[in-house]
Nucleic acid binder design. Structure first.
Length: 474
RNA sequence: GGCGCCGUAGCCAAGUGGUAAGGCAGAGGUCUGCAAAACCUCUAUGCGGCGGUUCAAAUCCGCCCGGCGCCUCCA
């Protein structure tokens, strides 16, 4: 059994076959850095992280590109409102995004492409499309893509099967174009653009790039220069990007290269709150830093996200977060127990086959993380039972190894709270004192010491093997 | 109006033809001086409703009810 992934292009779960294995080129749509990304945005990034990690687990050599949209309507508006130049506004949010990414343990992409750093390639792409008459200049100085010139336009979003709602937002477009479906490649500069320094001179006029243009230009630039190819293995993003964003990317890229832009299109579903999608528009959003300020373990958020299949809407709630936290704690306890039981023994790897097999089967089937997680928890119960029955250190070491391999992908074990050396020494001394008191039958004194330790945020646990302690996180 | 998705235990959520994974909560138990923690066990004769196909349906088909998303710059 090998990896199969749902492909929006075919509307099926297809076998995944990269162009030139083991290399996989992965382009993931990143944030627009006009503000802090909310956890709905991060759900998508976490889905992409899962995809990336599982591809790596499967032996592929992944090259991941993520774009940062630092010039578009919203960034310009926000900069203008703040009265600063564009970069001054976007840079802090870019840094904030990286912080949030690290907090949520999302693996950094190999390259982050900022739109403003690729104006040259974008201009070239527009010029190319103008030259082959797929694009045209309008009276207001903008450049549009003539959708009618691209035969397969609408294939990704199955546009031919749809009908536009009568009187929908079509009339409200601010720019002049030949056909209502045509979209802007290049937008003529307006005063607001100039004000924030978001305008560039080009052979076809002063202006700024349309949103869709950046992804085509950046993806092509990166894979051409690094691998000499013009086709991505996978292009991923949120479902809302299917139309028009990804549809237009295909039209631009394939219109210019004549080659398939991406072989595999993957889209993650929304995160919802009380049945509605999380969105800045609705004001029902929460940012990653909100979670961090509440002291939430990022493992809990990851667990919550991976509890639902990526193509299903994920309902977010505090109760769900608490449940996730509880189950993640259990995984941490389990791992501690294995480490203790394994000591320095040589790993007996025959022991963990079952988990490995089940984990793979689940993940190979279109990244079924909920099922993979279920396999992990079944493993936890089974191994605990065997450990209770006195399984040896070689087996424990083997289990630990296999467990950790699944965690390389899911990464949902709690991070250990760091404990200063002097605090650790103090705790050790107090525990010794308490043991003496217990031995002497002076339980009042023993309980007092337990209280003393607890006051410093340390939780004491009496086990058959003696007392253990851990720092309570948050 | 068009296209698409979803409805499974108190909550979250897998399963898409062979007789209901997993997590949280709850109950019981083991351990313990007590406690906490930890661990183990148990918890849906039923999968929105009604029909149909089939030896067999949560899974396929039809109708109905309820919820959600997209339809030109939202992850």
């Amino acid at each position: 059994m090998s990896l199969r992934l749902y492909n929006t292009l075919t509307r099926r779960v297809d076998p995944f076959e990269p162009l030139a294995p083991p290399r996989v080129t992965l382009y993931t749509c990143g944030p627009t850095v006009w503000n802090f990304a909310h956890i709905g945005n991060f759900r998508t990034f976490l889905f992409e992280d899962l995809l990336r990690r599982y591809l790596e687990y499967s032996g592929y050599d992944v090259f991941q590109i993520m774009n940062l949209t630092d010039v578009d309507d919203r960034t310009i508006q926000a900069a203008a409102k703040a009265g600063v130049v564009l970069t001054k506004h976007t840079e802090p949010f870019t840094q904030a995004f990286f912080e949030d990414r690290d907090y949520l343990r999302i693996k950094p992409a190999h390259v982050y492409t900022r739109a403003t750093a690729y104006i040259g390639p974008m201009v070239e792409l527009v010029q190319q499309l103008l030259d082959c008459r797929i694009a045209y200049r309008s009276e207001d100085g903008s450049v549009y893509y003539a959708v009618g010139k691209f035969d397969t336009y609408g294939r990704l979003s199955q546009l031919d099967k749809r009908e536009l709602k009568a009187g929908a937002r079509v009339a409200s477009d601010e720019y002049a174009k030949d056909n209502v479906q045509d979209f802007a490649l290049w937008k003529a500069a307006v005063p607001e653009d100039e004000k924030v320094g978001a305008a560039w001179d080009t052979p076809f006029g002063r202006g700024r790039p349309g949103w869709h243009l950046e992804c085509s230009a950046m993806a092509l630039t990166e894979i051409r220069s690094r691998f000499g190819i013009e086709t991505l293995d996978i292009h991923a993003g949120g479902v809302d990007l299917i139309f028009p964003h990804h549809e237009n990317e295909i039209a631009q890229s394939e219109g210019a290269t004549g080659r398939t832009f991406a072989r595999h299109w993957m889209h993650g579903e929304f995160l919802t709150v009380e049945g509605t999608k999380m969105s800045k528009r609705f004001g029902n959003f929460l940012t990653a830093r909100d979670l961090r300020e509440e002291g939430l373990d990022p493992a809990a958020f990851r667990r919550l996200v991976f509890l639902t299949h990526y193509r299903q809407q994920l309902s977010f709630s505090d109760a769900g977060l608490r449940a996730a936290q509880g189950s993640v704690t259990r995984l941490g306890e389990f791992r501690d127990r294995l480490v203790l039981a394994a000591r320095t023994a040589k790993a007996d790897l025959s022991a963990g086959n079952e988990l490995e097999t089940q984990f793979r089967a689940a993940m190979d089937d279109d990244l079924n993380a909920p099922e993979a997680m279920a396999a992990v928890f079944s493993f936890v119960t089974n191994v605990n039972r065997e450990l209770d029955a006195g399984a040896g250190p070689e087996k424990a070491a083997g289990w630990l190894k296999v467990f950790d391999r699944t965690m390389d992908v899911l990464d949902v074990t709690p991070r250990k709270a760091a404990v200063a050396a002097d605090l650790a020494a103090w705790v050790a001394e107090r525990i010794a004192a308490r043991q003496q008191a217990r031995k002497a039958g002076d339980y009042a004194a023993a309980d007092a010491i337990r209280g003393e330790i607890a006051a410093r945020g340390i939780e004491l646990e009496d086990t058959p093997a003696g007392p253990r302690w851990k720092k309570r996180d948050a």
